[in-house]
């Protein structure tokens, strides 16, 4: 038996080494894939903005501008160059770390995006911080009362929340808690310039709540299913037969294993939350990258559009990558 033990551990070490190498190659490939994805996204945005009706020069100068002044401004902004030239110029800038200036305000894109990005990340971060424990609690509570009233109630409401688009959830919340029914929270999330949203928690309460309901309902359902799965496993039966307390079975034996399945899903939900933020920010007039995106689309401010979309795409990619890696790690453990 001792001999078997050593042999197994040797095999385990070489296997671990091989796994690490394979993992390294996998990570590198995924990184390349991510960069390629972002490149393709940036080309798509470029093409799409060319197809948009309207003209930046006219937006800036107004309807009264003469054709000569419009043409001069276009030359000044580099809009007279062929499309591929414009794209290469922009790409070169990005690679040097300079995504250019806003066509409309003339301010560097980095300055404009910076503050807004912090605001958006704060909003998404606070939403995730509230959502994760709530979803866990709701999912586990429902699973432990499987088939009972509370569970059925949970399944019904979470399904409704799941199926409702964010702007509807947000609008309902505004009516319920912001204006008509029980106005206790500000219906818009305006921030004094330059101040952190964390200093104004009440004003971001409704946008956070909207995001929490939209993502949390989905996540809690996943937690519930995963927990039920784990609770019907043989090692839980074994734990019961060992005479362990209910609490120990739930928290030490079941939860860590249930979380294994939920964590990758949680990072996907985080990615969806980033996407949902565009709508929610617009709805509550919150000064984040989402509302910035809408403003810059309206004024055809290409460098700003590019920057914001790339940020959203990159965060999508990173969170998806995280989800895959976590799920992969779990597979190897099983």
């Amino acid at each position: 038996m001792m001999r078997t033990a050593t042999r197994t551990s040797e095999v385990a070490t070489t296997d671990a080494g091989r796994r690490r190498r394979r993992r390294g190659r996998f990570l590198l490939l995924r990184l390349l894939q991510g960069v390629l994805t972002l490149l393709v996204v940036s080309i798509l945005i470029f093409v799409a903005t060319q197809l948009l009706p309207g003209d930046v020069a006219r937006v800036i100068l107004g309807d009264a501008a003469t054709p000569e002044r419009l043409a001069a401004l276009r030359v000044q902004l580099g809009l007279d160059l062929p499309v591929h030239q414009q794209y290469l110029n922009w790409l070169g800038g990005v690679l040097r770390g300079d995504p250019g200036q806003s066509l409309v305000t003339g301010r560097p894109v980095l300055d404009m995006v910076g503050v807004r990005l912090v605001n958006s990340l704060t909003l998404a971060g606070v939403a995730m911080l509230v959502m994760l424990p709530l979803a866990l609690l709701a999912g586990v509570s429902a699973a432990r009362r499987r088939g009972k009233l509370l569970d059925r109630l949970f399944l019904g409401t979470s399904m409704i929340a799941n199926a409702t688009p964010e702007f509807v959830i947000g609008s309902v919340l505004v009516v319920l808690l912001g204006t008509t029914v029980w106005p206790i929270l500000p219906p818009v999330a305006l921030l004094p310039t330059g101040q952190s949203p964390l200093m104004h928690l009440p004003s971001i309460a409704l946008p956070v709540l909207t995001l929490v309901i939209a993502g949390g309902a989905y996540l809690a359902r996943l937690v519930r299913v995963s927990f039920i799965d784990v609770m019907s496993s043989e090692y839980i039966q074994m734990a019961k037969l060992k005479g362990l307390s209910e609490r120990r079975i739930v928290y030490r034996h079941a939860l860590p294993n249930a979380l294994g399945a939920v964590i990758p899903a949680a990072s996907l939900v985080a990615a969806i939350t980033i996407g949902g933020i565009v709508v929610v920010e617009y709805l509550f007039a919150y000064p984040g990258i989402g509302s910035l995106l809408l403003e810059s689309i309206r004024s055809r401010d290409l460098p700003v559009i590019q920057a914001v979309v790339l940020i959203i795409a990159a965060s999508y990619f990173i969170l998806n990558f995280l989800a895959d890696t976590l799920a992969g790690g779990r597979d190897r453990r099983a």
Partner: peptide, 19 residues
């Protein structure tokens, strides 16, 4: 359970907690 009566399962691979 565990003190007076104890159980040895058929498949320890699934009956031991992986975590």
């Amino acid at each position: 359970r565990g003190r007076k009566v104890a159980y040895v399962p058929q498949d320890p691979a699934t009956a031991l907690n992986p975590a």
